[in-house]
């Protein structure tokens, strides 16, 4: 079925398109595939012991301020102007910020995993893989430094194995965020040398690499900023794994076609 939008766009594939402003449209097959992919990641998160949470698409300016988001990524967050609301809001640039706000000033009884899925918005650029609006499934973990690294590394291996079973030619590589500001290069190199961030990347037919998932260590950054502690009194770190669902959809369709992509996602074993 042809996809019609009110916006300028370039046709990438019969099953999906991306407008010049970075909005993603999928046909029925693509939409079904995105739901199937999220069901799979959600099932894996719940099997790992995650609690599920639902968060709003907008996020309070205060939460992003506390996360130093504006210093690290100026120009990324899209503001929401609604004079009738009391607070100042932005469109959420990642789902996990809500988790830290949720747990602010709390004492966890033990290691904690939370999974959440939501719409995210990043206004930095728009091309055939950087969307302004996209859907992110995340698993956020809290625990000792050793627990967080174990979780991150286990997810990294597990998702790499899954990508192989899904027929994707993907690889896991050390990565860094595109920091801005006075300490840009230092932050980026520290993240790189300390292996805080890995990405699962796939090569597209265009020859460009596209990240499908990221596996991140935050150390005590968010637990300190949001005053989250653990009953044992031990050092509490956090980490997360994030899946960009539209990118998985694009990668699977480009590799297999929509029908086979859906068959694979629905049938490939996702158990650890």
């Amino acid at each position: 079925m042809t996809i019609h939008t009110a916006f300028e766009s370039k046709p990438l594939h019969p099953d999906f398109l991306i407008t010049d402003d970075g909005l993603f449209f999928a046909d029925a097959a693509g939409s079904k595939l995105i739901h199937a992919l999220d069901s799979k990641f959600r099932r894996m998160a719940l099997a790992a012991g995650s609690e599920e949470r639902k968060f709003p698409t907008v996020i309070a300016e205060e939460t992003l301020n506390r996360s130093e988001y504006f210093q690290s990524f100026p120009g990324y967050a899209s503001s929401v102007i609604e004079p009738s609301r009391k607070g100042r809001y932005f469109l959420s640039p990642a789902v996990c910020y809500h988790c830290y706000e949720l747990l602010k000033s709390s004492v966890l009884s033990g290691e904690t995993l939370i999974t959440c899925c939501g719409k995210c918005f990043r206004a930095d650029s728009a091309d055939d893989s950087h969307l302004w609006e996209f859907t992110m499934r995340e698993v956020v973990f809290f625990g000792s430094p050793g627990f967080i690294r174990e979780q991150r590394d286990a997810w990294k291996q597990h998702i790499l194995d899954l990508s192989v079973r899904l027929g994707l030619s993907a690889e896991v590589v050390a990565a860094s965020d595109p920091f801005f500001g006075a300490e840009t290069r230092g932050k980026r190199l520290l993240q790189q040398v300390r292996e805080f961030k890995y990405e699962l990347r796939v090569r597209r037919p265009s020859g460009k690499d596209m990240p499908l998932a990221s596996f991140n260590l935050h150390e005590h950054f968010f637990t300190s900023k949001f005053d989250i502690t653990i009953k044992s009194g031990d050092t509490l770190h956090s980490g997360c794994v994030a899946f960009g669902l539209e990118r998985w959809c694009m990668a699977m369709i480009e590799k297999h076609g929509a029908e086979e992509a859906l068959r694979l996602v629905e049938n490939v074993d996702d158990l650890r």
Partner: peptide, 15 residues
């Protein structure tokens, strides 16, 4: 780099 003694400024000075 295990314990966080070296921050984003110190790594630049080291380099």
């Amino acid at each position: 780099f295990d314990e966080g003694w070296i921050d984003s400024l110190k790594i630049l000075r080291l380099i």
